[in-house]
């Protein structure tokens, strides 16, 4: 049943899955200044632990979103490539999902997101090994939050403990809150009514979040208006839901 990736051309992969996911993000690298506001906002919203200097040095920092920058050329013709915020791409066909022996990383049929179910996770880290974007982070320890720091924890998000894999959720708690509110008021969720923590904080407005299956939404409009959007590692057939605009 499963064809190997080399057997499939991108178009076939696209046909086999759904073309557009439900939620998507557009990131404009031309205006991203790398200021880290999104990283801080994400950490504050999602109760992400800080790990300290030593663990950070081992690459164990828990950022759900990081800003990549690369160098091109040598001095004096050196150039910093456009900053590239990288988070879970919420793949339509996610490489992390089939490798989880505990079914802890599963695809949400309802929201079309990749879920990480913390109570199922047993910490095999297969998913992180198989993630081509390297966006999953693992709780190597029970990282300390001395009192009274826990006061700022967001009650809408589970606090993870040692041995659990975690990653960007597209702020699913905000999705649910908005849906719940809309339902209580007897209406549909309006585009722009809520957004993810990173997009809300971004001083450059480089991140836009919304429904990609709604042609009227701002993300769909942006993707349509500007044709040069790139989806990273699309050739792997992962059907990522984050579109990057690289240059001006």
């Amino acid at each position: 049943m499963m064809a190997t990736l080399s057997d499939l051309k991108i178009s076939e992969v696209k046909l086999s899955g759904k073309e557009a996911g439900k939620w998507g993000m557009v990131i404009d690298q031309d205006i991203c200044t790398g200021c880290q506001a999104c990283v801080a906002a994400c950490a504050m919203e999602n109760n992400i632990s800080f790990v300290g200097e030593e663990d950070a040095g081992y690459g164990r920092s828990m950022h759900w979103i990081r800003i990549e920058r690369f160098w091109e050329g040598e001095y004096p013709e050196v150039k910093m490539t456009p900053n590239q915020p990288m988070m879970c791409q919420q793949c339509g066909q996610a490489p992390c999902e089939p490798v989880c022996p505990a079914f802890a990383t599963v695809h949400s049929m309802a929201e079309e997101l990749n879920l990480q179910v913390y109570n199922r996770c047993v910490g095999t880290r297969y998913c992180a090994n198989n993630c081509p974007y390297q966006v999953r982070s693992f709780n190597w320890r029970d990282y300390e939050r001395p009192e009274p720091l826990p006061n700022q924890l967001n009650p809408d998000v589970t606090v993870r403990r040692r041995g659990i894999m975690e990653k960007c959720t597209f702020c699913i708690q905000r999705i649910h809150r908005a849906q719940d509110q809309a339902k209580a008021e007897g209406r549909e969720v309006v585009d722009g009514e809520f957004t993810t923590a990173c997009a809300q904080a971004c001083p450059a407005s480089a991140i836009t979040f919304g429904r990609t299956d709604d042609p009227a939404s701002l993300v769909s409009q942006l993707m349509k208006r500007r044709s040069h959007g790139v989806k990273h590692l699309e050739e792997l057939g992962t059907l990522p839901n984050v579109t990057y605009f690289k240059g001006g």
Binding site: S108, M109, A110, E111, L115, V117, T158, I172, Q173
Partner: peptide, 12 residues
């Protein structure tokens, strides 16, 4: 059914 049996409905 999809919505109500989705992991992400309760776990995040």
């Amino acid at each position: 059914l999809i919505k109500l049996s989705d992991c992400g409905t309760c776990h995040y």
